Computed example of a mutant assay.
Amino acid sequence: MKRRIFTTVAFVCCFTICLAVVADLSGKWTGSLKTPNGDFALNYNFTLSGDKVTGTAETPQGTINITDGKVTGNDFTFNVDVNGMPVPNTCKYYPEGDTISLTLDYSGYKMHSTLKRSTK
């Protein structure tokens, strides 16, 4: 009986901690992407609902919606539409440094960036 109670309590605590970590992902994040044509500013606004991530990406061309967002622990993926083509983004959230490691795949060319929480 004690073992069953301990297991239940441990599971609830782990689940609560995971939700708290993921909840910290919501908000505005910024970074830059080095491309052959120069640096490109990255500005995201993430919103979480359960295991789904939505939001927007701000670009010089305007606001792009985040689609197909999924969260698993501290890992999450989403797409942004660039000129009619979905661009997959694979991310890992590091709560201890309040950073996100982001890799985007643009037509087979993978680019990496680190995002920081925006203080603005």
Rank of each mutant, 00 (worst) to 15 (best):
M1A: 12
M1S: 13
K2H: 10
K2G: 15
R3A: 15
R3Y: 07
R4M: 12
I5D: 10
I5L: 14
F6M: 11
T8N: 04
V9T: 14
A10T: 15
F11N: 06
F11I: 13
V12Q: 07
C13A: 15
C13Y: 05
C14M: 10
C14H: 10
T16Q: 04
T16D: 07
I17M: 13
I17Y: 15
C18M: 11
L19K: 09
L19I: 14
L19R: 07
A20K: 06
V21H: 00
V21W: 03
A23T: 10
A23Y: 05
D24K: 08
L25N: 03
L25G: 06
L25K: 02
S26W: 00
G27A: 07
G27E: 08
G27V: 13
W29S: 01
W29R: 01
T30L: 07
T30A: 02
G31W: 01
G31I: 11
L33A: 08
L33M: 12
L33R: 06
T35W: 00
P36R: 03
P36V: 13
N37K: 13
G38Y: 04
G38L: 03
D39M: 01
F40P: 00
A41H: 03
A41N: 09
N43R: 05
Y44L: 06
Y44M: 12
Y44D: 03
Y44N: 00
N45T: 15
N45G: 04
F46S: 02
L48N: 08
L48C: 11
S49R: 08
S49C: 05
D51W: 07
T54Q: 09
G55P: 12
T56Y: 02
E58D: 13
E58C: 00
T59Y: 04
T59A: 09
P60A: 09
P60F: 04
P60Q: 06
P60K: 00
G62W: 04
G62E: 08
G62M: 09
T67G: 07
G69L: 13
G69K: 02
V71S: 05
T72I: 09
T72G: 07
T72E: 12
G73C: 14
G73S: 07
D75Q: 13
T77C: 09
F78M: 10
F78V: 12
F78K: 03
V80Y: 00
V82P: 01
N83Q: 14
N83A: 15
G84I: 11
G84C: 11
G84E: 05
P86R: 05
V87H: 01
P88T: 12
P88W: 06
N89F: 15
T90W: 01
C91L: 11
C91E: 01
K92V: 14
K92G: 08
Y93E: 09
Y94T: 13
P95W: 08
D98N: 15
D98T: 13
D98K: 03
T99A: 03
I100A: 03
I100P: 03
S101C: 02
L102I: 08
T103C: 08
T103G: 06
L104G: 00
L104M: 15
Y106Q: 14
S107R: 13
G108K: 04
G108W: 04
G108P: 14
H112W: 09
H112A: 14
H112Y: 09
R117A: 08
R117K: 15
R117T: 11
R117F: 04
S118Q: 10
T119E: 11
K120F: 04
K120Q: 03
